Every structure is written in structure tokens, then in C-alpha cells.
Simulated scan of single mutants.
Amino acid sequence: MIRARGGPLGQRIALPEGKIVRAISRLSAWLDAAGISDGYVFQTMGKGGVPTGRPVNPGEVARLVKRYAAKIGLDPADYSAHSLRAGFVTSAAARRARLDKIVEVTRHRNPATVLGYIRDAECFTDHAGASFL
């Protein structure tokens, strides 16, 4: 069984392959390359790039997001680990995903939190000034 950080062991999350991201193929390749067959999907790495079995620290995820944001020319101060979750919600909402389906993936406890991102995603949809600005 693979465990999501903070989630119960064996928790199931639907993960479609997709046409662009190809999440299943990439996840399978990572697990094979890292030799991970059970435990945490994202583990700290020991010497020689060997997974330790311990989960990646959330602070390390934040550092990685900032590092790669800078590499593509973005201001790292504007991005955090939370940007990944917020970006997913915003993108899903912009493509008219249902709120219950978004929460099913993100595991937000309060759907009202997700509604804030949905409002942000829709602020340009049918904008009153779109025809003349």
C-alpha cells in the first residue's frame, strides 16, 4: 500500500492518466526507479539516492516549488507548496469540475475554502468589460 502524507494507510485516491500530465505513467516510473513498493510515495533520500522510507518534509516541498519556480523565471516569493493545491483547484474549477469532485481529490475539510479558489478561477468568465476593454 502507498500512503499519502498525513492520510491513513491505504487511502484510495482516483488518479486519471490524463493526456498531458500522464500522472500514472510518471508515478509508476518514479516508484520503479526509486524501488518503492510500499510506504510513502515521496520519501527523503539517503546517500546514493536511496529512499529512506521516511516521508518528505513539507518544508522540502516548499523549497522545491520555489527552486523550480525560479528556474522557469518566476518570482519564488510568489509560490509555495500550497500553490500546487491551489493551482489544482483553480484549474479544475476553470474547467467546470464539480465542487464535490474537487474536494474528493484535494481532501479539503471545508468546501467553503475551495469556493474561494473557484471564485478566483471564474473572475474573468463572462467579464462585464470583455467586449470593450
Rank of each mutant, 00 (worst) to 15 (best):
A94S: 11
R98E: 15
A97Y: 12
R67S: 11
A92M: 05
V105E: 10
H82T: 12
A94W: 03
G73Y: 09
K101F: 08
R98A: 14
R67Y: 11
A92L: 05
H82S: 10
A70N: 14
A77M: 09
A81N: 08
K101C: 03
I72L: 14
A86L: 11
R95S: 13
A94V: 04
A69E: 07
D100C: 07
G87D: 10
D75Y: 02
L74I: 02
V103R: 13
I102P: 01
A86H: 15
L74H: 05
P76H: 02
A94F: 07
V103I: 13
A69V: 07
S83F: 05
Y79G: 01
V105S: 01
D100N: 12
I102F: 11
A77V: 08
R96F: 08
Y68W: 15
R67Q: 13
A86P: 00
R85M: 02
E104G: 06
G87H: 10
Y68L: 02
R98M: 14
R95W: 08
K101N: 07
I72D: 15
R67T: 09
K101P: 00
H82D: 13
R67N: 10
P76R: 00
V103Y: 11
I72K: 15
S83K: 04
A70Y: 14
A94N: 09
A93K: 03
G87S: 09
E104R: 15
I72N: 02
D78Y: 04
K101W: 12
A92W: 00
V103A: 10
G73I: 08
S91L: 12
A92P: 01
R67K: 14
R67C: 07
V103H: 07
G73R: 10
A97D: 04
K66F: 09
D100M: 09
D78V: 01
L99R: 05
R95G: 10
A92R: 00
S91H: 10
P76G: 06
L84Q: 01
A77P: 00
L84A: 04
P76I: 06
R96T: 07
A93E: 05
T90Q: 00
A93L: 06
V105P: 04
L74V: 00
T90V: 06
L99M: 12
R95F: 07
A70W: 15
D78E: 15
P76A: 02
G87M: 05
